[in-house]
Computed example of a mutant assay.
Amino acid sequence: MANLKTHLTDAICSRARPETREYALRDERQPCLSLRVRPSGAKTWEVRERSNGVPVRSTLGTFPSMGVKAARMAAVAFLAGDRRPVRRSVTFRELCAQHELRHAANLKPSGLRTYRTYVRLQLLPAFGASPIDAITRRDIVCWFERYGLTSPGGANRALGILSQMLTSAQRWEMLPPDWSNPAVGIRLNRRRAIGTFLSKPQMARLGSVLARRSHIGCPAAGVLEALLLTGCRVGEILSLRWEDVRPDRLWLRDSKTGARDVPLGTAARRFFTSYRRRRTAARGRHKVFQFGEAVPYERVRTVWLSVRKEAQLPGTLRIHDLRHSFASHAIMAGESLFTVSRLLGHKRIQTTARYAHLADDTLRASAERIGMLILDQVEPPTRRRNAPSTQTKTDGGA
């Protein structure tokens, strides 16, 4: 290919193939800039200038580690007198390694595993070899839409990680100050509500089955009963120790949102008092619910499947729906979203709103109250009492 002058893009530079002799692709937008392609396959950015009437070529960097946009900025700075070595553009793979060392290492073990899974299975295959300054909004949108077809929620989570990583790269001066994050502002996939909650009759049947199994020494039934009474997460209850069961609250050392207190109502206090009395090892630093050699969560899940069938509950009901039920019944009892969010340990009220489901009779009662309130404003009760009857009298002789 002879020396060619064109509007260079990353795609054009990537498609440039080596030939028997080296050649240069000159940029129309920045005339002094060119990409030199050598027979070995190496591609380098060069700036052409004249010094005392003699043409001089200076190397700025290599492609693809330095994209077109970064090369143009480097050429302008070079011609303006900034002859410092140009920093090589960081690839996304290198950013991932830096981000895990400087940020992700502070995550909890479970959160770190989730973070690494998204990076390894989704982000690295899509962007690993790309320089971070060459990642465009179109690249991200195309990847996000493909991933969203199979896992809308996973795509949302991975996009959030990608956006945070690129923002961190700019803060760590891996990107120029005027750079705009291409992952910001992309519309997330709508989350499909899959949770449900137990009605009062279902709660009664479940409570009866759990109480019967808990009294005969089934620790998994005790876990499920504690979940129903406190609204805690499964992992929070399984890691609970007796020293953290206070007279009026639970102290959760390793909650999903950090250490926190969980206030206990009368029913929950009675449950833990009774359960402690029945357990001979309920002292010191022992866990409240002990399973011996069995894997705790797997044992709880096995018992849950049996309990769900015995209590005649829907086959789609999950253990986590006990937490949904706690939130929903609290709101139907008149508690505010803010109060329920504090009980559940949510940082955002929007998260609590997704948990809250309302029974039909609660909605009908609310509609009735609102309707009467409006009617009282439009037509006061005194006017309604004094209003003439709408029934017409029939005159038999007429």
Rank of each mutant, 00 (worst) to 15 (best):
T136Q: 10
L124T: 01
H99P: 03
Y115G: 08
Q98L: 12
D178E: 13
R113D: 11
D133T: 05
L112I: 06
R84H: 06
Q170K: 15
D178M: 11
P125H: 11
A158V: 00
A134P: 00
D139C: 08
Q170Y: 08
S168I: 06
A183R: 00
T114K: 14
S89D: 15
R87M: 07
A129Y: 08
L95W: 04
P131Q: 12
L95K: 08
A158P: 00
Q98D: 15
R137Q: 05
N156T: 09
Q170E: 11
R84W: 03
T117E: 13
D139Y: 06
L107K: 14
R146W: 01
R171G: 15
G153M: 07
F92N: 01
V86W: 05
F144D: 02
L159N: 03
V86K: 11
C96R: 07
S130G: 07
P182W: 10
S130R: 15
N181Q: 12
P125V: 04
T150L: 11
I161M: 14
R171T: 14
A183S: 02
G111H: 04
A134H: 01
R113M: 05
A134L: 02
T167K: 13
L149A: 15
D133Y: 03
A97Y: 04
V141S: 09
G160R: 03
L175V: 04
A126G: 01
A155M: 01
S130I: 11
S168Q: 15
P177C: 12
Q170T: 07
R88Q: 14
S163P: 00
L175H: 05
V184W: 02
G128M: 10
D178Q: 11
E94N: 12
S89L: 10
R84N: 09
D178P: 02
G160C: 05
P85D: 13
D178Y: 07
D133W: 00
Y115R: 12
A104E: 05
R102D: 15
G148W: 01
R187T: 09
L159V: 04
L162G: 05
V119G: 01
H99I: 06
S110R: 11
T91R: 15
K108H: 04
